[in-house]
Design a protein around this nucleic acid. Sequence first.
DNA 1: CCGCCTCATTGACCGGGATCAACAAATTGT
DNA 2: ACAATTTGTTGATCCCGGTCAATGAGGCGG
Lengths: 248, 248
Amino acid sequence: MQNTADRNAKERCSDCPIRHRAVCTYCGDDELAQLEALKFYRNYAPGQEIVAAGEQSEFLGSVVEGVVSLSKTMSDGRRQMVGLMFASDFIGRPMRQSSPYDAVAVTPVRLCLFQKRRFEALMIKTPALEKRLLEMMLDELDAARDWMLLLGRKTAREKIATFLMILARRAAHAAGARAEDGFQFELPITREAIADYLGLTIETVSRQFTSLRKDGTISMTGSRQCRVPDFIALLDAAGEDSDGGLLS
Amino acid sequence: MQNTADRNAKERCSDCPIRHRAVCTYCGDDELAQLEALKFYRNYAPGQEIVAAGEQSEFLGSVVEGVVSLSKTMSDGRRQMVGLMFASDFIGRPMRQSSPYDAVAVTPVRLCLFQKRRFEALMIKTPALEKRLLEMMLDELDAARDWMLLLGRKTAREKIATFLMILARRAAHAAGARAEDGFQFELPITREAIADYLGLTIETVSRQFTSLRKDGTISMTGSRQCRVPDFIALLDAAGEDSDGGLLS
DNA sequence: CCGCCTCATTGACCGGGATCAACAAATTGT
DNA sequence: ACAATTTGTTGATCCCGGTCAATGAGGCGG
């Protein structure tokens, strides 16, 4: 739980792996310097809580590496994940007191953080920051609404296939390749987390994996490595139009 | 289909019913004047399409009155509503080519519109506009994520109760009252639209209304007028914590 | 007034996914 | 190395909500 390790390690923003995708994307050198003066890093171990629902959070910032889950829990324990955040995604809520959901590190996570007040103050003077943040929130909103279609209308099989499709695209994109046949990638989260994400139970998740394996849509080595021999078949299983938007 | 009626009727922004809630909320007099020069009104009849998914949309703006649904449709016809927009809500996507979902007028609707290019140009010069838009998008994102919990984890009964709870609060708020016992309101959409919103079928929606009526959680006159004799009971049926956040 | 349409309700039946339970496999601690 | 724990798979059974089908209730034009 060395979550304060590296707090003072001042890496250069200009060398940052998410420099051109994160909230700072549109910042010029001078604006970047101001961010650089405010930022600090913090690391989280898998399973570690970043903020709890309802808690006042002092900080906000970007995921530099790792995966963070955002989830809501009902009083009787039912849980729904409402977002999976990867490198460059923004965590925290400017102009809001507290977070309405739990944020938890799923893998080892490294965040680039700012004190909320300072960040907000800077944002007022920095249109580049505000513009990018608005853009990112619009993307999040689109993703959330896509997920609403999945949760409300897709079958268990389609849900799993859609999830794998998204991971395959992410992995392919990160590798600079196309999401073409034969691409291999790792599942970043447990079956339980997948179930929470897709609005299913672990048992159903497991059964659908088995089913997709049996009919050859995917193949797996271990329970975390997944390969897609035929991407179109996966799209099809996901209930997506297999025309056009292959890599949209 | 007189959707161009009133296009040139220039009502004063200062008299606008949504002046203090819409995207223009933070605008000063001078900024408001600039918006006033660009704006125009357009009316839509119930059922009329405002923009289709994938279509290039020239315009964006605010709902002045009426209710607009945003929905996604799968190729086999399954449909999921992803948002219900009321007066003061913002429609359209700055910095985006096309809308990823259908927007349809549910009731008679009046929009206050701007040409997209002009609005975007103005937004760059007007932090008040951008700030308010960011705020509104954050609210939309919260609402979308709440809806994800509903779609993924709530039972049919809880879904209906949650929907009614939200409408009751809206109506109470609009009337300047509290969402207390005995409050009455109208359902703005058909059973089919409710089903699309909640990820159910019309039959299940109908059955749950009947069930809530039978056990006295609600009472109805006709199929569109709903009364809540005991708001706590409704909260309870919705699966919400009945402590604290009564009117959050 | 009647026929037609849309919207809503109700019933009978079925099936996908949840639940309960047992077990296997991987990971961790000592 | 071995027990303990976590994570994943599989089977048996149940039930909520979907599907199919019939009927009711308004609204509207002729």
